[in-house]
């Protein structure tokens, strides 16, 4: 089956690639665009390691066809921060031991970022409910929740200071 041109905005940059319509978005990101932040844990829509932000929604990119993503605005963990300039969520995950092996972390942080956009002041229960699509096999979640709550505080404090 012939390939199609897929145009997307990824982390603020217009990109174009050729892909078969049946290719999964996670494969296009990782293998064609070399964006390897989002991981493949289960490839069956269950673990959330492949979570990206697509047009303002947290999406499991293993359950989206490349063709469906044509024209979309996508943010991955690479678009949130980098080693020299960590996002506040990355900093808080580091400080509060929100990761151990780190495999789930790109998905966790990308999802947490959207959650805090929609609910800047979540309760612990709301964080747990909002993060229910992401599985971690190491941490037991306690420190992930702590990191996200700490990031919410920091972001709110920064917002207040700016006003």
């Amino acid at each position: 089956m012939s390939k199609m041109h897929i145009k997307m905005k990824v982390n603020g940059e217009e990109v174009e690639t050729l892909a078969e319509p049946r290719e999964l978005l996670i494969h296009v990101l990782r293998e064609r665009l070399d964006i390897t932040g989002p991981h493949i844990g289960c490839e069956t829509s269950h673990c959330g390691a492949c979570t990206i932000d697509m047009d303002g929604k947290s999406v499991k990119s293993c359950t989206v066809f490349a063709a469906q993503a044509n024209g979309k605005d996508i943010t991955t963990i690479e678009g949130l921060g980098d080693p020299d300039n960590l996002h506040i969520l990355q900093e808080m995950f580091k400080e509060h031991h929100g990761l151990q092996c780190g495999f789930c972390t790109p998905g966790m942080i990308t999802r947490a970022h959207r959650l805090l956009q929609e609910n800047p002041n979540p309760t612990e229960d709301e964080v747990r409910f909002g993060m229910a699509g992401n599985i971690c096999r190491c941490t037991g979640y306690q420190n992930i929740v702590k990191s996200i709550l700490a990031a919410a505080n920091e972001m709110n404090a920064a917002k207040e200071a700016a006003q």
Binding site: K57, S58, V59, T63, R111, F129, A132
Partner: peptide, 9 residues
């Protein structure tokens, strides 16, 4: 139903 990511789609 499902989880947040699934509910967005």
């Amino acid at each position: 139903i499902a989880d947040p990511q699934v509910r967005y789609m």
